[in-house]
Write a protein that binds this DNA or RNA. Structure first.
Lengths: 238, 238
DNA sequence: GAGTGGTCTAGACCACGTA
DNA sequence: ACGTGGTCTAGACCACTCA
């Protein structure tokens, strides 16, 4: 409970986020100009600018001089694999994808907790591989609440040319804003070992991710196993 | 080569960083007020404020309303283990330390490249353990250019109550600003296994870090092995 | 040329910490 | 009471994009 009311730029920031969550502007769309937003929110353009600067830092919008302010989108080429920190030791960063399955399931207690669902609520379960130069390097398992991704199936995924997050955004209106990851070193189980073409027991980097959409609502649980023989997870600390 | 000159707030930011690097204000010290800096740099206070806001975002300074602007320091309690992302699964984040050795050595080709030294230049090599509830969870190996850390030895480290980065800052005037890490899953070798009390071959999280001081100058190479049985490496993606 | 965001200024007023 | 940073405003001018 804040003692004093939030500053005006913060209130405006929250109003814009609410409008984004409500779909008033879709990813890729232009927002109104600073001056128009200033009139709408009864504030000066400097205050609106401050709100938009915060949203830019959060990667919710992108501003381009002379063009306007646009809702950030995972469909932009510069945003593909935005949340995947795995890069080859030689710098290469492209992948090919191979879908293993996509099926309906029931949320386990753990999945339900992460996604703020009730246990046994319907979810969609996806398993896929990412390969670099025909070598599998990532085995991903995803769980998605079915109520946000109704109609998602293997055919839809296979037909889509971009990343999963671009697909979620374009077809289901779910834009991923941020994510939290927990990393561990684990020994490969027999099934993962076979799929990643390593021997069972070999060390793999386990990456548990919860991804959030507007308003900090969790909408994806993902468990990745990364083969870090010739790749590494790159991180910057500030 | 920038076509147009950098904006004034950026020039001022760089001048302040240069002053920090030159030691004009030491960690924990107060910087001059906005008004004083505005006069010094012949700019408006709004422009100086913008420069200081950027430095705040980079964690180079901290601003406190009513008090002033202060040079960030690793000796502040809230900054201890600022670059260590390992947390226990139950949330606990404290450690005890155990120094294993601290000795002079010569830079290997790899160390020299990371620290921008010549091969065989003198470095100081440190090995230590971090323990949680008497259980070892981190084995760290550090390499430091001797010319920045002359006089560092086991007695100095053992006598110091704070973190290594606080020690480096207080005793050697080297403030770590940011770091880059490369993470991998590896199998424990016999020596690491013994020190971390695991069986050889067990998966460990390998964390290679290069830490930088003001002006992006690399001053520490660190290789950590994390036992991620009851701990995980926490990361936020934006 | 019109419209957009980016920079820079000057100044008012508020909130906080110290004395 | 005073000095600090935090918020908010109004407006000038510049840089870029597109028709």
């Amino acid at each position: 409970m804040p003692k004093s009311p939030a500053p005006l730029y913060e209130q405006i920031r929250q109003l814009i986020v609410a409008a984004l969550a409500a779909g008033e502007w879709r990813p890729g769309d232009a927002l109104p100009s600073e001056a128009a937003l200033a009139e709408r929110f009864h504030a000066s353009s400097g205050t609106v600018r401050r709100a938009l600067d915060e949203l830019t830092a959060e990667h919710l919008v992108e501003r381009r001089q002379g063009r306007g302010t646009f809702v950030a989108t995972h469909t932009a080429p510069r945003n593909s694999y935005r949340f995947l920190r795995l890069v080859a030791d030689d710098g290469e960063s492209g992948f090919t994808r191979e879908l293993l399955h996509c099926r309906r399931a029931r949320a386990t207690a753990e999945t339900a907790r992460a996604l703020q669902l009730r246990t046994a609520e319907p979810v969609i379960e996806v398993r896929r591989l990412l390969l670099r130069r025909a070598e599998p390097v990532v085995l991903d398992d995803l769980w998605l609440p079915e109520r946000h991704f109704d109609g998602l199936n293997a055919a839809v995924i296979d037909a889509y040319p971009g990343t999963l997050y671009a697909l979620f955004e374009e077809r289901f209106g779910v834009h991923m804003v941020r994510a939290e990851e927990k990393l561990r070193a684990v020994a490969a189980g027999t099934d993962a070992a076979a799929l990643l073409r390593v021997t069972a027991g070999e060390p793999l980097l386990s990456v548990d991710r919860v991804a959030y959409t507007y308003g900090d609502r969790p909408v994806e649980l993902r468990r990745g196993l990364y083969h870090t023989q010739a790749d590494h997870y790159r991180n910057e600390l500030n």
